[in-house]
Each structure stands twice: as C-alpha cells, then as structure tokens.
Design a protein around this nucleic acid. Sequence first.
DNA 1: TTTTCTGCAAACGATTTGCATACAC
DNA 2: GTGTATGCAAATCGTTTGCAGAAAA
Lengths: 148, 148
Amino acid sequence: MPNNFTLEDLKQKLHDGQHKLTPRRQLVLQIILDRPGEHLSAEDVHYILREQKSEIGLATVYRSLELLSELGILQKIEFGDGCSRYELNATDPSTHHHHHLICVKCGKVTEFDKDLLEDLEAHIEKKSGFHILDHQVKFFGLCKECRE
Amino acid sequence: MPNNFTLEDLKQKLHDGQHKLTPRRQLVLQIILDRPGEHLSAEDVHYILREQKSEIGLATVYRSLELLSELGILQKIEFGDGCSRYELNATDPSTHHHHHLICVKCGKVTEFDKDLLEDLEAHIEKKSGFHILDHQVKFFGLCKECRE
DNA sequence: TTTTCTGCAAACGATTTGCATACAC
DNA sequence: GTGTATGCAAATCGTTTGCAGAAAA
C-alpha cells in the first residue's frame, strides 16, 4: 500500500480539528488508497462504494473528501472535465509533485513523477518575490497509443 | 494592443468553420483584448458589457467565449474558484506559455512568462512516449505583499 | 448530555440547451 | 431563402447546505 501515513497520524490530525475517524471516512479513504493513480471524482467514489454494497450518501462522500483534503491527506485536482478529482497527497518528497499527462484524444490521464521544476521555482522567487508553496503542472498532448 | 492576429485571420478562421464574425463576438473579444492579464470569467465579461451599455445575453457570452477558445484565439483556464476564465492565447512563442502565480492568501493571480519547461518536456517525451502539445503550470504560494 | 456525523431533499451557481425570432449572405 | 446567431427561460450537472435523526464521546 503506497501510503506514507499511519492510521494513528490520521486519527491525530482529525482529532486536532475536533473530527472523528468514522467508518464512512475510512471507507472513502480506502477507496482512494486502493486505487493509486486513478484520480477519482466524488461520484466515482460513491459509485464504487455502492457497488461493494457500502450504502453511503453522496453528500457524505463529498464531505469526507473535502475534509481529507483539508487535512492534507488528499489532494484535490481539476482536469477541466467539469468535476473535482482526488488523489493521495504523498508527503514523501520523492513522490510528491508528480505531473499529469492528459491525452487530448482519448482523455487518459497518466502521471509522471520527475520534478525538474526547482530551477524554475527558484528563478521565479528571485524575480517576482512570490513565495511558492505548491504547484500544479499539467501537460496536454497525445499519449503513446494515440500517436500511432 | 497585444494581439498578434489580424481581424482578417479571425474572419478566415470563423469562416472555415462556417461561423461569422458578428458584432457581439467582436465585443466579447474586445473586452479580453483590452484587459491583458486579467483572466475574466463569462460573468465578468457579461458584467463589463452591460456596464458599457452593450446589451448582450449571458448565453451569448458563453457561446462566444467557447467558440473563440475552439478557434485557438482564447485559452480557457481554471483556477479552482468554481468558474472558467479566459485569456488571450498568444501564439508568439516569447509570450506563450506563461505561468500563473496564484496567491493562496489574497487570491491574486499574476503571470510569469519565462518558460524553463523545455528540459522537462523533452525528458518526459523521451521517457514516456507522450507527445506534449501544451501545458498549464500553476504555482500556489504567497505573493510579495502577503509575505510581509 | 453535548457534539459531531449522516442521509435526504432542497438549494445553489456555473454552464448548456430548446426554441422562437432576428440577422447575414 | 437558407443557415447561422441571439435572447430568454428552462434544464442540467456537480456541489453545498439545512435540518432532523443517529452515533460517539
């Protein structure tokens, strides 16, 4: 399992904000954990949960995803397809900051880890005085399959 | 005026797709042209037009912005604030591909032109076989004013 | 008990669409 | 005259919220 936080960490984080680690929230998180690299939307998560007979309201899915994002467990991302998607917000620097490759033909979203943006970020900080905390990088183009 | 296409180009592009360069479409485009670096939403454009006594339906604004984006005149961008925004899609390589610096405190969006992503793109193409056509880069952080 | 959590339905806000009319070639 | 554009209102769709009951501390 590619998560780099413990259940205890999570409980602590929730507790600090006067929240609880409820069964529903664990279910929602587990769906994301089980599908690395999948960028699920709230409706996706809801659908998967219903499929596995876990009855849970769509509003609760939204609220759980929102909460987990606020805690930094998940990362909310937008691919311009009209809905928010979520992925695990890895805190390990080696996996953090991966880039998304979005195929404009088939719509497939793949990931690419290597982060070569440091130079650019340093340059920007120096020139503009803007202190960068995070970034989102999306590349649009044609995936290997669609090129052929 | 920072546009690098002529009215004739635009007319031709529209004509190729069996569309017309109507007065309304010109109005919408002009609003964007007059405000470089402003990232206006459809409602922003609609509001500005009403202010200057140009009566035009909101749906028409949406349709015009959509059409101009399809033609590559405008670029549709998402800053995660719940609505699509539009900017001029400069075709001049020296101004193309500017990055957005989004302040997480005051919400201000500024631009930064320098494009140092070439190395990264070359690396990705080589490693993944993904052919990159365009990219979107957003940096989140604190602007100069909010740091103080 | 007091607080948080959940489900449901209603509300919401950005965007799209159906349709009748107006315009352009 | 034929096809495209437009305005308006209604519909749509993802998301949020109000509220009442359920669960947890």
